[in-house]
Design a protein around this nucleic acid. Sequence first.
DNA 1: TCTTGTCATGCAAACGTTTGCATGCGACGG
DNA 2: CCGTCGCATGCAAACGTTTGCATGACAAGA
Lengths: 321, 321
Amino acid sequence: MPGRSTIQQVARSLGVSPSTVSRAFNAPHLLKEETVSAVVATAERMGYVPNLHARALVTGKTGLIGLIVPDITNPFFPPLVRAAQRAAETRGLSVMIAETNSLPERERAHIASLAPHCGGLIIASSRLTPEELRHVADSTRVVLVNNDTEGVARVLISSASALTEGIHALVARGARRFCYVGGPHRSWSEFERRSTLEQLAAELDLDATYHRDESGTYHEARMMTATVDCETDAVIAFDDVIACGVLDGLSDRGLRVPEDMALLGCDDALPVQTRPRLSTIRLRAAEGVTEAVRMVTEATGSTVDEERVLLPGVLEFRETT
Amino acid sequence: MPGRSTIQQVARSLGVSPSTVSRAFNAPHLLKEETVSAVVATAERMGYVPNLHARALVTGKTGLIGLIVPDITNPFFPPLVRAAQRAAETRGLSVMIAETNSLPERERAHIASLAPHCGGLIIASSRLTPEELRHVADSTRVVLVNNDTEGVARVLISSASALTEGIHALVARGARRFCYVGGPHRSWSEFERRSTLEQLAAELDLDATYHRDESGTYHEARMMTATVDCETDAVIAFDDVIACGVLDGLSDRGLRVPEDMALLGCDDALPVQTRPRLSTIRLRAAEGVTEAVRMVTEATGSTVDEERVLLPGVLEFRETT
DNA sequence: TCTTGTCATGCAAACGTTTGCATGCGACGG
DNA sequence: CCGTCGCATGCAAACGTTTGCATGACAAGA
């Protein structure tokens, strides 16, 4: 009968004290080698597996890290949770996942329920205010992903430089009138992409109009495409699923991509390919969240030192530009 | 200063015993109403939040449920983890997630590491042998999703009846030569879909050939499509991302869908739409995993009673058939 | 031989809860 | 006025670990 058996049973069965068994795993250098091997052998035989709760209780280290994401069905996030899980795994940690549906309400609730029990929290694309975030970061280990609030550790999976490059390339090919189809409000990525275009539009004296697909879904984007000016030279979409909606929306209107209008997406996380193949910005999401896990686990105090890592994406011109 | 404060501090600050504070939350009917409200008030004020580990230690209930999935980047799974998380949330539980990459090795490891600390385990699309699964189900609460091993509780998100219906409809329209493009080995869903076609092919005297996209990716499917016989009347794809690969693969070869060849996918979980719109089978994945959560939490003993729930999908003919 | 030191192990407290049992108190029936 | 009962609360043990400190054995140095 394998499974649950305590450190005490192992100890008794060996005629040693529980401390010895504990040390055999946590501080083997304190014990005679033969003792260690004897302990691990019987522990193995008896199917002993340490009770994490008991350990957490005494050490204060829970072995858990919480990951909060707005919308797991958005293809940007699954690779991110995968990477988080892998990174945690290599450190012997497990990850608890929570989804907020982009609702600050739910985000708050999940933070409150996860924070006390996790060694650290990774919050992706937070919709909370800087004050609020700083406040939670005051009492628990937090690293933000794609949220640039000063004073708290954060990793930014950035598209700005690649987008700048892309817009310049588009302009070089004669584009003057741009249209940005944005994603969710209060998202840092949305802000970054939109303001990159705004800034360049000002600098280069471009025409730019702005739309928004609040839900971030293909269908809303496709519907909304009906309202984009047909004189537009290039559409910049917040992400690839919105870009796909736009692509099909344009096609609905008989507009050809890229001949009539160029289209640039973002993320490069779609499980399928479009035709024509979507130009996009490849983001270093997995890398970013791996870094986040590192930061949150390497924190020494009850809080993680401010650090701001920025991972620029890379422009991937394919067939829609 | 909010955050960590123990039951004892709350008790002391009120001049009552820790038991009273505990009962105020867990068994309020044992206390005077005014005591209860006094306790919750100061607990709130002091930012008290129960330590789950301490609780788990004494009660043996951990408040965690583990969810094991093969590949979270496959669009079938995110809605499933979302549903699991929601269902858990309504019961005051959290879910720990682990990804196996379809490797039995990793699946075993995750089961071993999760099982001892979770109240229950939901294993989706397990690649383990029936014996192995029964063995783990012997000592821990397990419910399988999309794996039909007898003797352990399971919910099957089934496509058989819808697929049968779809094949009949295709045959009625004159299709005789079918090609099945399968997904991962050892997957129950794969087995179900393939054998549905096999059986119908025998019954109705159809021609059927079988291919496999082991990785389940768009690209492999698209490549492999080069090998499907151009006389084929209809392609049945294991899932929608494979179907998309096939769709584009056929187009690469100058074959039109549905004129030259019909195409039927499965899952209806793609974040985007194809053109022509993919015919598929809408699976009740969210519903299924919600049920799984119910089963795993309502189990009374240290094991969950065998129960086999089967949720038939619904056929969704769109433009590729 | 005695001291000193090192090395391996045991003892017991502590972590923050829950919960069976005991206790004290007031009310009520006789 | 006493006995009994029920109700609200307190006491203390228990859950399975980790860890600072104590202890014992044994070796080496004096």
